[in-house]
Write a protein that binds this DNA or RNA. Sequence first.
RNA 1: GGGUUCAUAGUCCAGUUGGUUAUGACGUCGCCCUUACACGGCGAAGAUCCAGGGUUCGAAUCCCUGUGGACCCA
Length: 772
Amino acid sequence: MEPKIQETAWNPEIEKQILKQWEDSKIYEFKPQGEVFVIDTPPPYPSGRPWHIGAAAHYAQIDMIARTARMTGKNVLFPIGIDRNGLPVEMYTEKKHNIRMHETDRAEFLKLCSTALDDLEAEMIQIMKSLGLSGNFSEYYRTDSEQYRSLTQATFIELWKKGLVYIANRPNNYDWVTGTTIADAEIIYEDIPTKLVYMKFKIKNSDMVLIIASTRPELLCACQAIIVNPEDERYSDIIDKSAIIPVINREVQIKTHPSAEKEFGSGAVMVCSYGDQNDVALFRELKLEEIVAIGKNGRMTEVAGPYAGLKVKQAREKIIEDLQNQNLVEKIENINHRTPISERSKIPIEIIPMEEYYLKQKESVEKIKDLGSKIIFHPSMHKQILMNWLESITIDWPISRRRFYGTEIPIWYCKKCSEPHVPEPGKYYKPWKDPSPISKCTKCGATEFVGEERTFDTWMDSSVSPLYVSKYNRDNEFFKKTYPTTLRPQSKDIVRTWLYYTILRCEQLTGKTPWSEAWIMGYGVDEHGAKMSKSKGNVVDPLPIIQKFGADTFRFWSASEINLGYDFRCSEQKIETTKKFLSKLWNISRFLSGFPIVKSAKTTPTDNWILSELDKMVAECKKGFDDYNFFVPSTSIREFTWNLFAAHYIEMVKGRAYSTGFSEEERNAAIFTLHKVLSTLLLLLAPITPFITDYLWQTIYSDKTIHNEKFPQQENHEDWTRFTKPITEFNSNVWNKKKEQNLSLKDTLEMDIPQELQQFAKDLQAMHNLKS
RNA sequence: GGGUUCAUAGUCCAGUUGGUUAUGACGUCGCCCUUACACGGCGAAGAUCCAGGGUUCGAAUCCCUGUGGACCCA
């Protein structure tokens, strides 16, 4: 019989035809009936080229989850989305066009951002498709679409009406050159040479002088406390006493706090509003009253007295001069200070109190701990990241940003009394340019309004993704069937942000957890274990790799390289060697495709042995699939296929399958078993390598796709695995003997079969051409 | 500074509730066209299981201390 497969190697070009077949037959379409499985897919952010290979591997794995669920008989909703809100595209656009956001017309700037995103998005979608993702591409969503943004706004309005949003004046990172609050993510740190000034503070009612070192003497006027380490014996006498601020001549109290390092400067630290983030924390903790010494224009305010109106740097020089003139400086050291710099304007940021909107979260913490404890984490250890974060929440969530490319905060203020008004939910509002939908102020009755200009923190959008995919507020029937969703897959670095904020928001809106399971992945790092970055030049572009080796190779590499929750290494060489396994599978199939399909047979001991090993492997794989850990099935399938099935079983039954010296019944048993093993392997591999398995399945076993099949179940065979070791060792012995005697493998050899392997004797003799 | 996590051949990785000789792959070296596969087969070399201490009849595995790395937060 001619083999149905002729080619000697799998050709990844065939993937394109299979992809088209899947698309045409719509085999992955979601039906909201029966048991549903809803994935809250992370919408990737198109922040630049190339797309991170770790992200591509991540999506390959999410697809394996979707396919695993389908093969257990579930209807799977696997949405595809693109995240398009936020800072990176603004920075990308500024750089690309050499413009500044706040100096550009807002509508014009938004258009430039949108175009930039379109280009990057097109490439991402193409990669996702060619990876074979079985997601819903026909209605992929964008987080900057009218529909998505109106959901973000509607959920905000809902929370506003519940009284969960408030305005507060709190310290924020501020870039006075571009005139905007900036997020922590926009801050870079640089070592900048600066003067560390040792200043003399007099202790009240005493002759003692306390030396305090600071790089920010211009903030003396905003000093509200002095702290020393509680274990610092040098200062134990002056705790709770008052010191006189030099030049300013105001009293402040001396307190103890463990954050004062004995070794830095003199060990005593002045706490000013605000020199750095530590000051912010201390002001909050010690309940100090802030003094705003620096204005939004980057100049000293009136509280600075003679220094008012000077720029920070000028004020610093002037006050050092004055201190020296009054003999209040002990010494000045030139040091390199790790200084927070605004990434865009490259100037040191200032921390200035700003009025922003906050979403209440402190009062939800206990509720979220409770919900969080019920969510199943894969792997379970990463639940700890969430729990630790919940322990450390001390302030509410600032949600307003002075940015352009984000969802607008839907608020209009009365021109007369400034009362804020939110519109009716359901529409997408742009208060910075739309006419007010509010006609009359509810407080003073005035009829003129001014729109809010700020946008939301981008996590405000991202945190409603489960509500968006399950059509909250859009299709109640659909929502009831699909929410809470089943699974959130994401990477571990954003547990504290995306995962946490999603639980918070969904709890506030629906009272329920957004998903029952969370699947947390590590990062893709380079082949030496270092983080990939453009500046290091170690970024691996996934696109040429997928084109060169095919999606299945990439996917199998991803499955067998990534142990759930741990970081994984990306190297082209490793991906290349993975391809060999697909070759092996291909050639096994090619061999088997020459034999007829046998539905049942009376199996021999050799057959029972491999079927028993197969059964063990099926059980092993099931464990991995249940935990969405594809490392487990991919490695156990590879080992079984290569080291037992191909190396030993196929060799043992080749003679029998070709029927040389065996009965028809024995022959059928071999062919039956070969097909039984191969078809099981294809089904188990289908979620991991969907292309090659579908091709082989349709060539050998069926005229239908493999992707509507169910997983094979464990059959609880009689356990023959105790023979594995003796069989493989015996084969090895024979091969070694022939090698020692310089024999070819097909030459005859005189050798006895050991007693324990007697029941396999006929196959073994045929395999090695043994004579006893 | 707080937290999470990791440490096993040149490289990557497995190792269930402690139990004979520590798994597999890549790479290296040697031999081999054998009625699926040279993108293959067979064989070989290669490990103080990070260090120190403890528990135990017995530790890669459990406990403590330390060292080094990665990441998150401050």
